[in-house]
Design a protein around this nucleic acid. Structure first.
Length: 505
RNA sequence: GGGCCGUUAACUCAGCUGGUAGAGUACUGGAUUUUUAAUCCAGGAGUCGUGGGUCCGAAUCCCACACGGCCUACCA
């Protein structure tokens, strides 16, 4: 380690720093301000003394004067370091490098080019860096390195920082929304003996003490419902789910989901919650970009990419304007299929459907049960067309073993999924609370499983027992946090909104 | 799983009709008291992803592998 030319030079500098009795890695530094505070009301700060800290990102030497740029979490400011102000310590600047953390004390002023600047009276090394940072102009471009060394990405690109700050704001916003409505935030097991609540292959692990296989959860559903049974009435959990499947632009093997359950509510109430949450998210302030200094013209690929403000209830995603004004469009599952395939799938038997799919060049295995065939048709013909926020409602029973039968049609369940820009964003039911019916549904899944559908859900007897004690009518909802973060940060890939996305190791 | 593209200095890239490497940034030394992709002068820095093959000679051509990107398929 640290055997590159530049690293050796820095280690030599580190030695000199130590020799001169300076701690290269001191313990703390008191800041009176953050850089964004200074930028936000710069008139108030002119000639004022401030003390703050950050990482050096650029150094421009001019003999007896040195300019440097220093960056903290939200912002950046220029330092003016002058020999006859700093005296002897001016020489120590030679031992500093781009990448080092320093604390500074100085007065705010504007240069003749109107750049907000700190005239430094005193500086303190807070951490000596040994590795050189990526190039300042192009930044870090290589996507692999960006994901593997996200810290470098964050240092080099304000846009990336902005995305992840936004992500936190989104979660916080939803949490406040739910807390206000007296939902209780809870935590349920990630390690589960029986996985359930969704269709997916799990990650498998092994617990030595119990000599038993365990699974990483694919969903929080069955545990949260147990809490509804327990009388907690309104619960939610932000959590990671894990699915042992491929990864692409929209899928990461571990991903963040919000699930919430509300007693005495149904799926119509859940639709309203989705609409309201998105309305809140559209109102989130841009707290970051407007305190970051403008980049110069023609600079950096991302000068034009700074997160766009939402205007009213409209966002722009990948060049398309999307409006979240209530009410969102609602179409039943079968109507949407009819609209986009041109055929009434409800009237067709399985063989006719398979034939139709094959004529359209969609590979469908003969073993598919009806639900899966319909699902495939939906994914192919309908989902990509759902750009504007849309609720697809009233799904066939086969694929929804945890949803309650539709009040007007025994072949359907009260379920919806919401789609935006062709992406599935949420999934919700009027929850099935009839224990005997739940047994039947699990048995049906068991049959699918025996026929080779390894994603069919597994019978969970303990859950049935819990249901046997009585669960009130309940509405349940899951929202994909990664995907809504993509929407609100105009990110093309899920990897752009997960700090450390899964990569091959 | 399939297709296309990529992997060269710490970073961003050039070099690819085969003759064993080049620029900018960064770094080092020097000049410079309002610069901001600072500028000017000088300099150091690369087992050209890995392993094979063809050839007198491979960053360059061929094969395999690894990692990545985009698209596509699967998986909700």
């Amino acid at each position: 380690m640290f055997e590159e030319e530049q690293e050796k030079i820095r280690i030599e500098k580190l030695g000199k720093i130590k020799e001169s009795g300076i701690l290269p890695y001191p313990y703390k530094f008191d800041c009176t301000h953050k850089i964004k505070d200074i930028r936000k009301s710069k008139e108030d700060f002119i000639d004022k003394e401030v003390q703050f800290a950050g990482r050096i990102l650029a150094i421009r030497g001019h003999g007896k004067v040195i300019f440097a740029d220093i960056q903290d979490r939200e912002s950046k400011i220029q330092l003016y370091l002058k020999a006859n102000i700093l005296g002897e310590s001016f020489e120590l600047l030679k031992l500093l490098d781009i990448g080092d953390f320093i604390g500074v004390q100085g007065k705010i002023f504007e240069t003749k080019t109107e750049e907000l600047t700190v005239s430094v009276q005193k500086f303190t090394l807070l951490s000596k860096s040994l590795n050189p940072l990526p190039e300042k102009w192009h930044g870090l471009v290589d996507k692999e390195v960006r994901f593997r060394k996200r810290y470098l990405d964050l240092i080099m690109s304000p846009k990336v920082k902005e995305v992840f700050i936004k992500r936190t704001q989104i979660i916080k916003c939803i949490r406040e929304f739910l807390d206000t409505r007296e939902f209780l935030e809870v935590e349920t097991p990630v390690l589960q003996g029986i996985y359930g609540g969704g269709f997916a292959e799990p990650f498998k692990s092994y617990y030595k003490s119990l000599d038993r296989d365990f699974y990483l959860r694919i969903s929080d559903e069955l545990y949260l419902k147990r809490l509804i049974i327990g009388g907690l009435d309104r619960v939610y959990e932000f959590g990671k789910d894990f699915r042992n499947e491929g990864m692409d632009r929209l899928h990461n093997p571990e991903f963040t989901v919000l699930e919430l359950y509300q007693a005495y509510a149904d799926y119509n109430d859940m639709m309203q919650i989705v609409e309201e949450i998105f309305e809140e998210l559209c109102r989130l302030p841009e707290s970051f970009s407007n305190c970051h200094p403008e980049r110069s013209e023609g600079s950096q690929k991302d000068s034009s990419l700074s997160l766009r403000m939402t205007e009213g209830l409209e966002i722009e995603y990948q060049g398309t304007k999307i409006n979240f004004k209530r009410p969102w469009k609602r179409i039943t599952f079968f109507d949407s299929l009819k609209q986009y395939t041109g055929i009434e799938t409800r009237d067709k038997d399985d063989n006719e459907l398979i034939k139709f799919a094959q004529e359209k060049g969609i590979p469908i295995s003969k073993e598919y049960h009806r639900g899966k065939i319909l699902d495939t048709l939906f994914d192919t013909f309908v989902q990509p067309k759902l750009i504007e926020p849309t609720f697809i409602i009233d799904y066939p029973k086969d694929n929804s073993p945890l949803a309650k039968e539709h009040r007007n049609d025994p072949n359907l369940v009260e379920r919806f999924e919401s789609f935006v820009y062709g992406m599935e964003i949420s999934n919700a039911f009027s929850e099935l609370n009839d224990p005997l019916e739940q047994i039947k549904r699990f048995e049906m899944q068991q049959k699918f499983r025996e026929k080779g559908d390894m994603e069919a859900q597994v019978m969970d007897k303990d859950f049935i027992e819990a249901l046997g004690y009585g669960m009130p009518p309940t509405g349940g909802l899951g929202i994909g946090i990664d995907r809504i973060t993509m929407l609100f940060t105009d990110s093309h890939s899920i990897k752009d909104v997960i700090l450390f996305p899964q990569l091959r190791t």
